Simulated assay, not measured.
Amino acid sequence: MTEQRHTDSGPGSAAVTRAWDDLVATARRTVTDGLVVGTSGNVSVRVGDTVLVTPSGVAYDRLRPADVLGVGLDGERLFGTLVPTSELPMHLAIYRATDARAVVHTHAVHATAVSTLVPELPAVHYMTAALGGTVRVAPYALYGTDELAENMLHALRDRNACLLQNHGTVVYGDTLAQAFDRTAQLEWMCRLWLTATSVPGHAPTILTAAQVRETGEKLKGYGQPG
């Protein structure tokens, strides 16, 4: 059983090849959709007990199949020659503490702006429910540190997304597509809140916790069956 898991999540396996292709495509999309600039931000995906992660300081459009990079849940390199993202402690903390299968970290402009203004993003839209509730802001800590990872985990309690103060966003999901979609939704809600609060003499209405929970229940049946 152990050998089979190792084979399925090793370099060259079909599962790893597909996951790496999806990871690179997702990382490139964070750039094209304006969620990161240059090589900021990072993406990871879990295949068995192996975590595939973007490397540090390498432009996403330069990543190729041969650049596949995998580490264990303890951070030990399993394969690949490039240096992992400096935010590896943050990614691994999420995988060890949750059932996440994919993590997206960005420096999205509106979300980062909100992280400097409030301790949490108010429930300005019902899609707050898709992120588990009001999105908290993790206190600032130096990037790439265990302190930042710990602050992030506190902010993620009962949530699948959080803001990092003066830094950016962290979102996880069951798939890379879900993690990316949640990231885009968070950035949109931050932009919405900033827009609404910029009107002089007016304040946006905020949904109650009960209204957010009601939406959460309804979202469980959203989409196509099967």
Results as ranks from 00 to 15, higher is better:
Gln4His: 13
Ser9Asp: 04
Ser9Pro: 02
Gly10Ala: 15
Ser13Gln: 13
Ala14Lys: 12
Ala15Arg: 15
Val16His: 08
Val16Asp: 12
Thr17Ala: 12
Thr17Trp: 00
Ala19Thr: 10
Trp20Phe: 14
Asp22Ile: 00
Ala27Ile: 08
Ala27Glu: 03
Arg28Thr: 04
Thr30Ala: 06
Gly34His: 09
Leu35Gly: 05
Val36Gly: 01
Val37Leu: 13
Val37Cys: 06
Gly38Leu: 11
Thr39Ala: 10
Gly41Gln: 00
Gly41Asp: 02
Arg46Trp: 01
Arg46Ala: 07
Val47Tyr: 04
Val47Asn: 00
Val51Arg: 00
Leu52Pro: 08
Ala59Pro: 10
Tyr60Ser: 11
Tyr60Gln: 06
Arg64Asn: 06
Pro65Leu: 13
Ala66Gly: 14
Asp67Gln: 11
Val68Thr: 15
Gly72Ser: 14
Gly72Cys: 08
Gly72Trp: 07
Asp74Arg: 04
Leu78Arg: 15
Val83Tyr: 01
Ala93Tyr: 09
Thr98Trp: 07
Thr98Leu: 09
Asp99Phe: 01
Ala102Ser: 13
Ala102Gly: 10
His105Gln: 15
Thr112Asp: 03
Leu117Ser: 10
Glu120Thr: 09
Val124Phe: 04
His125Ser: 12
Tyr126Gln: 15
Met127Gly: 05
Ala130Glu: 13
Gly132Gln: 10
Gly132Phe: 04
Thr134Gly: 14
Val135Glu: 04
Val135Cys: 06
Val137Lys: 01
Ala138Asp: 01
Ala141Trp: 01
Leu142Trp: 06
Leu142Met: 11
Leu148Asp: 05
Met152Gly: 07
Leu156Asn: 02
Arg159Trp: 04
Arg159Lys: 14
Asn160Leu: 07
Leu164Met: 15
Gln165Gly: 05
Val170Pro: 00
Gly173Arg: 07
Thr175Gly: 13
Ala177Phe: 01
Ala177Lys: 07
Ala179Thr: 04
Ala184Trp: 14
Gln185Cys: 09
Glu187Thr: 00
Trp188Thr: 04
Arg191Leu: 05
Leu192Ser: 09
Leu194Trp: 02
Leu194Ala: 11
Leu194Gln: 11
Thr195Ile: 06
Ala196Tyr: 04
Ala196Glu: 12
Ala196Leu: 15
Thr197His: 02
Val199Asp: 03
His202Cys: 11
Ala203Phe: 10
Pro204Leu: 02
Ile206Gln: 02
Ala209Pro: 03
Val212Ser: 03
Val212His: 02
Val212Phe: 07
Arg213Lys: 12
Glu214Lys: 14
Lys218Phe: 05
Tyr222Trp: 15
Gly226Arg: 04
